[in-house]
Every structure is written in structure tokens, then in C-alpha cells.
């Protein structure tokens, strides 16, 4: 009689270290990390200001120049997130929205935090301002937006600071 084959399994994990480049958008992340500045790009031909930045204009395909933008803006549309990936689970519930920075012609998708988070607080037309983490890695999660009237109280917290 042939003994029935039984395999022995060991549970293990593979850790992968890797790097990826932000390519032509690198300056945006470097400026956020080092200088707490928000940079968009401006088309050299039609003059449209893109935020998030594009290395080439999405309308006329011409190259763009870097331009520093204001850190205040207006909410175009928003939602409050209650279900998310593991990276953001501790922040639930939090707001996200498309924000048109003053001087930009396209809107940036970014987190909107509030001490009193209700839909009316972050609805269309509300003014917001960028707040930065003190510890920055050059990622989108280095900064977020808060209602303009909450700005002072957010930047007085030990882990955050205002932009330049």
C-alpha cells in the first residue's frame, strides 16, 4: 500500500524593498518635503496652470514651467470617507475633496481634515488652507487641507506646521 502524500507547509513572508521615481513631477514632492511649498506648472504656450503639475500641457501638449501656487483654495466637491485601505484606517472618518488652489485652473484631490467634520463644513465653495506634517517624506500624505478658520488651531498641534 502506497502511503498518501502529505505536504508540509510553513507560513512565511517575503519582504521587498523597492524604489520608484516620481519622474518629471519630482520637483513637486521635493518642494513639499524640503520647503513646504506647493508647486504647479504653467503651460509655456496657452498659460494654463495645472495642479497637480503636468510636465506637458494636457490641452496643447506644449512644455510647462514650474510656478509656486498659493496654499489656500476652494473646495469643488468633497466626501467623507468611512471605509478605506489600511494606510488610512486610523484617520477614518476623514474628508477628501477636489480643491482648486488660488491661481490654479485644475483641481487637486487631497485629504481635508476638520475638528468638526460634517458634510456642510467641507462642501463646495468652502475655503481651505494647506497644513504640513512636521515629519515629511516627500509624499502626498505630507500635507492636507483644513477649513481656513481652523488653520491656526491645526498648526498649533505639535505634529503639524504651517506652510511658507
Amino acid at each position: 500500500m502506497v502511503e498518501k502524500f502529505q505536504d508540509h507547509q510553513i507560513r512565511d513572508a517575503i519582504k521587498i524593498n523597492y524604489k520608484y521615481t516620481m519622474g518629471g513631477q519630482s520637483k513637486f514632492f521635493i518642494e513639499v518635503m524640503k520647503n513646504k511649498k506647493l508647486f504647479g506648472t504653467k503651460c509655456t504656450k496657452c498659460g494654463k496652470t495645472w495642479m497637480p503639475p503636468r510636465t506637458s500641457c494636457s490641452d496643447c501638449y506644449e512644455p510647462t514651467d514650474w510656478v509656486e501656487l498659493n496654499q489656500t483654495g476652494t473646495i469643488n466637491v468633497s466626501t467623507i470617507v468611512w471605509y478605506t485601505t489600511s494606510a488610512f484606517i486610523k484617520a477614518v472618518p476623514y474628508g477628501i475633496g477636489f480643491i482648486k488652489l488660488d491661481g490654479a485652473e485644475t483641481a487637486l484631490l487631497q485629504g481635508i481634515f476638520s475638528e468638526n467634520l460634517v458634510p456642510s463644513k467641507i462642501k463646495k465653495g468652502k475655503r481651505v488652507r494647506a497644513v504640513f506634517n512636521k515629519e515629511r517624506e516627500g509624499k502626498m500624505t505630507d500635507f492636507f487641507f483644513v477649513p481656513e478658520d481652523e488653520y491656526e488651531s491645526w498648526i498649533s498641534k505639535p505634529e503639524f506646521e504651517g506652510g511658507v
Binding site: 466637491v77 466626501t79 470617507v81 475633496g97 462642501k123
Partner: peptide
């Protein structure tokens, strides 16, 4: 969240 942006903007 991408669909909800459109739906919320439509509601507005």
C-alpha cells in the same frame, strides 16, 4: 470615492 465626487457635484 471617484463616483461619489461626481454624484455630490451633481447634487450641488
Amino acid at each position: 470615492s471617484s463616483y461619489v465626487s461626481m454624484v455630490n457635484a451633481h447634487f450641488e
